[in-house]
Simulated scan of single mutants.
Amino acid sequence: MSIFKKFFTKEQKQTLDKGLEKSKSNFFDKIGKAIAGKSKVDDDVLDELENILVASDVGVDTTVKIINRIEERVAKDKYTTTSELDRILREEIAALLAENNSSDVKNYDLPNIKPYVLLVVGVNGVGKTTTIGKLAAKYKASGKKVLLGAADTFRAAAVDQLIEWGRRVDVPVVSKGMNVHPATVAYEAVEEGIRQNADIVIIDTAGRLQTKVNLMNELTKVHKVIKKHIPEAPHEVMLVLDGSTGQNAFIQAKEFTKATEVTSLAITKLDGTAKGGVVIGISDQFQIPVKYIGVGEKVEDLQVFNKQEFVESFFTRR
């Protein structure tokens, strides 16, 4: 019996399968070579599996945890054949993701809070602003009243890009142009969200990780001014990571979780990489729920992260 609830449509599942194709092809090609000519799960097979997991950017700590669990099962249940390895590995990764204690998002639901303030953080180039645009389109399509705040004011392209997304999906954008303090935009965005009775206000922020002290100060100020309008806001701080960067995504997650309280993750660009294992490692190591994954360029390719469907897609061979 599955430990997850199943609610993906056939189309969503097909998109996910296609988006993870590079990751799982690379993964299973390596496993196939590792067990070629072997009939039982022995130390050599487990050593090879450990190398494959690390190479797939699952991360060293999470890899060690998975290998230890498999060793315990092999010893306890007397699993010996390599044909059983896929199933055991699949079950242990599914269990690991379930331990994150996060509920899968469904249909872009929102808590009974109005407006719900979502602060989005991440370094330049990870797809942060594009993810915000896609989220705006998703929430708008689900009947929500959405407002965007262009507070990544140190990068002209980010402001212009968010304004274009707002135009494209018919969602208002609060913008003050470049070189205005992000907190000013955040303050006015929440104020406008209250005035317009918006369901959700999504605020883009600067991603200058190379100046960590400035970044921390900026985010602290943004939090402070938002609370002037809504004391319990922001209700969510989402970190956007580029899955194709592998271990660099771990480093970014580590630095941003030091700079601010990150409460959810969006992992993008999984369709163009063989590093899909990064989702497993980041979810395990940071114990922050992965809420969305990007598996393509289209709006519909930003998907809610469903643990069961991810594991099933990752382990489905053509």
Rank of each mutant, 00 (worst) to 15 (best):
I3W: 09
F4W: 15
F8C: 04
K13M: 13
F27I: 02
F28D: 07
I31C: 08
A34I: 10
G37C: 08
K38G: 06
D42P: 02
D43Q: 14
V45D: 02
V45S: 05
D47I: 09
E48Q: 09
N51M: 15
I52H: 01
V54L: 15
D57E: 09
G59H: 07
G59R: 02
V60L: 14
D61V: 14
T62N: 00
V64P: 06
I66M: 01
R69N: 12
E71P: 04
R73D: 02
T80Y: 14
T80W: 13
T81C: 11
E84K: 15
I88W: 09
I88K: 05
E92D: 11
L96S: 04
L97K: 03
A98W: 07
V105P: 08
N107W: 12
Y108V: 08
Y108D: 10
P111D: 10
P111Q: 12
V117T: 03
V117R: 00
G122S: 11
G127K: 00
I132G: 03
L135Q: 00
Y139A: 08
Y139W: 15
G143S: 11
L148K: 03
T153V: 13
A156K: 13
A158S: 11
A158T: 05
V159L: 05
L162T: 04
V169Y: 12
P172M: 05
V173Y: 01
H181W: 08
V185M: 05
A186N: 01
E188M: 11
A189W: 02
I194W: 01
R195C: 05
I200M: 04
I202A: 04
D204W: 02
A206R: 01
G207T: 07
V213W: 01
V213Y: 05
V222G: 14
E232C: 09
A233M: 00
H235P: 00
H235Q: 06
E236P: 04
V237S: 00
M238S: 04
V240H: 13
N248R: 06
N248C: 10
E255P: 06
E255L: 08
E255F: 02
T257S: 14
T257C: 12
K258N: 15
T260R: 08
T273I: 12
A274I: 11
Q285R: 11
Q285I: 13
Y292W: 14
V295I: 12
E300F: 08
V304K: 04
V304R: 04
Q308N: 14
R318V: 13
